[in-house]
Design a protein around this nucleic acid. Sequence first.
DNA 1: GCAAGGTC
Length: 853
Amino acid sequence: MDLIITEKDNAARRIAAILSGESAEVERQNGVNVYRWGGKRCIGLSGHVVAVDFPSEYSDWRDVEPVELIGAAVEKTPTQENIVRTVRLLARDANRVTIATDYDREGELIGKEAYEIVRDVNDGAEIDRVRFSSITDGEVHSAFDDPDEIDFDLAAAGEARQIIDLVWGAALTRFLSLSARQLGDDFISVGRVQTPTLKLIVDREREIEAFDPEAYWEIFANLVKGEESFDAQYFYRDEDGNEAERVWDGQRAEAVYETLREASEARVESVSRRTRTDAPPAPFNTTQFIRAASSIGYSAKRAMSIAEDLYTAGYITYPRTDNTVYPEDLDPRELLDAFTGNRTFGEDAETLLEREEITPTEGDEETTDHPPIHPTEELPTKGELSDAEWEVYELVVRRFFATVADSARWEHLKVVLEVGEHRLKANGKRLVEPGYHAVYPYFSTNENVVPDVEEGESLALTEIRIEDKETQPPRRYGQSRLIETMEEMGIGTKSTRHNTIEKLYDRGYIENDSPRPTKLATAVVEAGEEYADRVVSEAMTAQLEDDMQAIAAGEKDLDEVAGESREMLERVFDDLMESREEIGDHLQKSLKADKTLGPCPESGHDLLVRRSRRGSYFVGCDGYPDCEYTLPLPNTGKPLILEATCEEHDLRHVKMLAGRGTFVHGCPQCKADEADEEEDRVIGACPECGEGSIPPSSRDGEDPAATAEDGQPVEADGGELAIKQLRNGSRLVGCTRYPDCDYSLPLPRRGDIEITDERCEEHGLPELLVHSGDEPWELGCPICNYREYQERENDSGTDLESIEGVGAKTAEKLAAAGVESVSDLQDAEAETVANEVEGISADRVRKWQAKAG
DNA sequence: GCAAGGTC
């Protein structure tokens, strides 16, 4: 039997289809897809199925000095048991094994890992290696016709990276965590990629903090020619003879402004026209795809997650690639042809096909890993995809269109005008040939119209404006700019950069979007800069890349490189250990500063954001237990401390991060005070315990008021419903007998609530109006409102797509197997689902179940 | 429980 091993299931399926002439059949073994035809089997791994780690005697952080990790052994252990088991099983009976993992360094290492699993159970089989950069008929056949061997040197280069990253990362992470006494979930992590990325953000923040704004002025004029008018800006020649618009001297600006105001006309001194060619963009690699998706509102993580779903569904090519040059066997005409007749894309595809020559653009980076991201010839219908998936799909399709479209042409018109000794200029631009913009609407094509004027002509000068401005500090990195910068610096990979940023959020190093560093992050970077400069600098990656090159070229060996790196880390630890306490203190102070709101009104200690044992957030005093002062926080979301500070209480404002439900809470002391001052406003009897209330036993079970009860009839105790403002900022309609009766209905956090004279026929309560913004919102009867809200929640709450990682296509597949809602998924046996749904592993199902709570 | 790199 012949066995073929690929890096992922998707590749296994496609290669099996090509080699078998579409006759391969899939069967599941241990929940893993195995493709079979004739005497052949093909199985896909899931990337690395083994991982490096220290032996178990090193696993207790408190028992082992971090420095000991430097000399510790490093072992490989299987992480994907089912896949490893299945590979072993198949390998036993194989005469020949072909490694067909991705054509890049990491692919070579994954291939070598597969080789070792095979050799472990079968020392006779012939093992060879095939390489191809896109899974197409031609490339796959020619690779299999002429197989090669595993490049063990290249794989060893990858192993050097694994070992060095583990040793440096684990030793330094444990050292910082132990010195700051941060064990458990809140450990303090450091690594070759994450820490230089964090330093980028910290450095930018330092620039922003050190920035000293400078005042300047700009002067504009409006010019009229016949019916048309346009804006022009004052400029002068600076010391170097360059055109400058910013006037740094206020008195001079004022003088120019006055002179222009006194003039009534300007004479055209010169007119220059030029046309500019605007070349279409290069094909998408991962970074440029993320950048484009971010310009239409998708975070890096979301964009990648949607792209992965579209890839798994077969609509786009592999989304993790560095390549920006289409492979030779991609025939643009053939691919465009697949879009003709399509409702959304047909017309554009047909227009593009009408041209004689089609030459796709090329980017600077050409790699062997995968083709640039482009649509496949299989088209989804709009209904098959969610709105977000469709938007991202359309972006990928239109980018492909753009890369085979013509250049655009702009006409630039520059007019210089003179008013006495002063000069004004106007820059006009018109898009004369839309070219690729016609099929790719994601770039701005704003025009600035300046009418045709002639040299020597006089134009009426009106509306002189002077604007006083300030130089601005540099802007924080956005996520996609950060990913681009990482790529430029050579840190991280196409598959990991977006995860690294996510990791910085999870570790409490950055907050908000665009990311801003916490005090902890600054302290970690400072500690790195002082004691382990290599790990905060991209130089460590650069050195590692050089060493890996040398290993791959056979000039150095793995042990030599790893040994040098370990020695370097030893020296880092010589200094670190001496300053252990100092480093720990600084980290602990920073951690506290990240949680500090301001002074406690009772004891003068700091008020901190804390977490109760049940997981909810509140504000408590650092002087606890001597001072027991507390303030509540809203019960939804994760608190973010803002820079804004309450003038009355000297406390920082708090924002609650809860995805789409994010809101600014403000000063928690003010919120509590407001609630204490606000009188409850009674609106009627409590349906649970008030006058004329119905005992729960005889009530309709659908009634939202029928919360968990023991079924015993409740005595009418004269409870009344009132609009209440709570100290944690939320507002509700609740019973005046609280806590004896806990009947409650939610109300919006913002806006003034007006109690109208109209009453709900069903519940007898007054209809409510909420005033916030221009139009009042008719909330109506609070019971009816809550019922409608719950119904809406039920409709969307059971939606499988609400689970992160489940796309429309996957939800459809799950539904076909009888898993239609979140609760179905929770009740299901992961193994059973995996066996019934093709391409889905039990592990993945378990992850979804965990996410669904 | 540490890293970074695959994949989902």
